[in-house]
Design a protein around this nucleic acid. Structure first.
Ligand SMILES: [Mn+2]
Ligand SMILES: [Mn+2]
Ligand SMILES: [Zn+2]
Ligand SMILES: [Zn+2]
Lengths: 155, 155
DNA sequence: GTGGAAATTGACAGTCATTTTCAATTAGGA
DNA sequence: TCCTAATTGAAAATGACTGTCAATTTCCAC
């Protein structure tokens, strides 16, 4: 998360390349997004920024997240909630997610064997895969111990 | 899709068991849903019914689909669109989907090896999995031939 | 078969995340 | 510094879905 994070430069380059401008709002939003380092919703990110810069609107947060997506610096994710979450990992890191239904923890993982098996299955069905989405829902170690399989509301 | 489809009986049983009533609207909606045999949205199903029975409201379609879900005869799916699609397969058939980004075709598949590998990975990370969702996006055989990798709008 | 309580229906209004509109402000190259 | 295109935020619009409610229908007890 240091200022040396290459993602800031990538975003600046993206803006320049696209004929867009660097603004105080965009800098704050992007910084807060990378600093959080979690899968945040637009509103969650907005709330974090509000505490330090009440002058930034939710609409601008939405617009900046869209730019980050276009720059390949964020990915939209749907984890079965009413709203969209944004993944702060570079779009070229294809990974999957484990979501705890009790505490809401989201664990990321990458598995080459899983990836190649998926490709093989798709190819055998005549499909050329460009994107994939795998989400496993259940209970993390801590919650499985407590809940003993009981489904609980999201924390 | 014949009238002997055991799903009609399962739904009737569900209604009886729950103290609910069999109505003309529910019969039409359920029949149209099973007859379509595709992953329809509530509105698509509503439109199909409209052509033959304009007296059925979209609200009732939503409510009946909810009952089908409770009966284990439909599953809600999010394929990256703005709306929910409903899967007419029994809820106890865990399967995955390949979605063509050009023609919209949705191909279902089931792979035991993929399933067990996912379980193994989740377990190694301390997770107990209760549900999973895998979607592979790309191009079907026909569309890959035509589009040559060009992403196009959904047909 | 009827009566009547409980379930159902559909029009309409409400909700909620996200997008569009638009007048005022700002960035940044000439 | 000037000027114009980009940007912003408030408010209104959107679109999928859910809640409300008076009128209607189902179906079981009689
Ligand atoms: Mn992630
Ligand atoms: Mn399916
Ligand atoms: Zn947990
Ligand atoms: Zn296709």
């Amino acid at each position: 998360m240091a200022e040396s994070d290459p993602r800031f430069q990538r975003f600046a380059d993206f803006l320049a390349r696209s004929g867009l401008k660097t603004t105080r709002q965009r800098e704050r939003i992007v910084h807060a997004f990378f600093a959080a380092g979690r899968h945040l919703s637009a509103e969650e990110l907005y709330n974090r920024i509000q505490t330090q810069d009440p002058g930034i609107g939710l609409v601008t947060v939405y617009r900046t997240l869209k730019l980050l997506r276009q720059a390949g610096l964020a990915t939209e994710r749907q984890f079965g909630e009413a709203y969209t979450r944004f993944d702060p990992n570079p779009a070229d890191w294809p990974h999957d997610h484990l979501i705890c239904k009790r505490c809401g923890k989201i664990q990321e993982f990458e598995d080459a064997g899983l990836h190649s098996l998926r490709e093989k299955i798709a190819r055998s069905l005549g499909f050329t895969v460009t994107e994939h989405k795998l989400e496993l829902y259940g209970f993390c170690r801590d919650c499985a111990r407590l809940g003993k399989g009981r489904a609980a509301r999201t924390a």
